[in-house]
C-alpha cells in the first residue's frame, strides 16, 4: 500500500501506516516505547514525557509524533533510558507513593515503570507534601497523593453530554486533579469502574473495591510492562 512508511527504531527496520503516532507505530513493530499518559484512541497529551525519543538528534515525545518515511528514531540508548528513569523518580518523590498500602499495587503503571527501570530508590529527596483526598462522590474516591497528572481521565472521561468529569485545578507543582461531584454521581457502575481502570496509578478508585487480585496474580507481578508488545508481535 502507498501509505505505508518505513522508519527505523534503534536501527531496526519498521513499517507502519503513514501518520500513525510513534508509540503505536512502534507497538505494531514489536517495540515498546514506555508511556504513562498515552491512551489509545485519545488525543495525546505529551505530558508525562516518558516516551521521549530522539528523532534526527532532537528530543521528541513519541506519543505526539506521527511517523513519516525515513524517520530515524533512537529509543533505548543509555541517554534516553537515563532521562526516563529520572522522570519516573521525579514522579515518585513528587507524590506520596506508599506502594505497600496501595489498592493498585501490582497493577500500577508507575510502579511497573519503577520495576522496568530497576529503580531501587529515587535519587531525589522525598518531600511528603500534603495532598487532599476527595471521597465526596458516591462511587469514586480521588487520592491525590498518588496522582501523576497524566490527564488520561481529563481527556477521556466525559459525561453523556460531553462535559469533562475530571479537570486540573491550580498550576505548576500545586496542580491537582479535580472531580465534578454532580457529574460523577451520575456515573454508572461500569463507568466508575472504567474510570478506575483508566487511571495508571491508584488515584481514581472505585469505592468498596480494592486488593481484589492476590499478590502473584497481578498485572505486573511476573512480567515487565510492555513485555507483551515485545514478545507477541513478530516483525514482518
Amino acid at each position: 500500500m502507498n501509505d505505508q512508511v518505513k522508519f527505523t527504531i534503534d536501527g531496526k527496520q519498521c513499517t507502519a501506516e503513514k501518520n500513525t503516532n510513534l508509540v503505536e507505530a512502534a507497538k505494531m513493530n514489536g517495540i515498546y516505547i514506555p508511556t504513562l499518559c498515552h491512551l489509545e484512541g485519545v488525543k495525546p497529551a505529551g505530558s508525562c514525557r516518558i516516551c521521549n525519543v530522539k528523532i534526527n538528534g532532537r528530543f521528541m515525545t513519541a506519543c505526539t509524533t506521527l511517523v513519516v518515511d525515513g524517520m530515524v528514531i533512537e529509543s533505548n540508548t543509555n541517554e534516553i533510558q537515563e532521562l526516563r528513569k529520572i522522570i519516573i523518580e521525579t514522579l515518585f518523590v513528587s507524590g506520596n507513593h506508599f506502594c505497600p498500602a496501595c489498592e493498585k499495587s501490582g497493577n500500577c503503571e508507575l510502579q511497573a515503570m519503577g520495576y522496568k527501570y530497576q529503580m531501587m530508590v529515587p535519587r531525589f529527596p522525598y518531600e511528603f507534601e500534603e495532598k487532599e483526598v476527595d471521597a465526596k462522590t458516591t462511587k469514586l474516591y480521588i487520592d491525590r497523593n498518588r496522582c501523576i497528572l497524566c490527564k488520561r481521565c481529563v481527556r477521556s472521561i466525559k459525561s453523556k453530554d460531553g462535559k469533562s468529569i475530571f479537570a486540573i485545578k491550580g498550576r505548576g507543582h500545586k496542580a491537582v486533579i479535580n472531580i465534578d461531584h454532580k457529574l460523577a454521581n451520575q456515573m454508572t457502575d461500569e463507568e466508575a469502574m472504567h474510570a478506575m481502570e483508566t487511571c495508571p496509578v491508584g488515584s481514581i478508585l472505585r469505592k468498596e473495591r480494592g486488593y481484589v487480585d492476590p499478590i502473584g496474580s497481578r498485572k505486573f507481578d511476573h512480567k515487565p510492562i510492555g513485555s507483551e508488545i515485545e514478545e507477541t508481535v513478530t516483525v514482518k
Binding site: F98, V121, F128, E129
Partner: peptide, 11 residues
C-alpha cells in the same frame, strides 16, 4: 528506603 507506612504521618 522511603519511610514506609510510618511515614504516612509525614504531612
Amino acid at each position: 528506603i522511603m519511610g514506609g507506612l510510618p511515614a504516612l504521618r509525614n504531612n
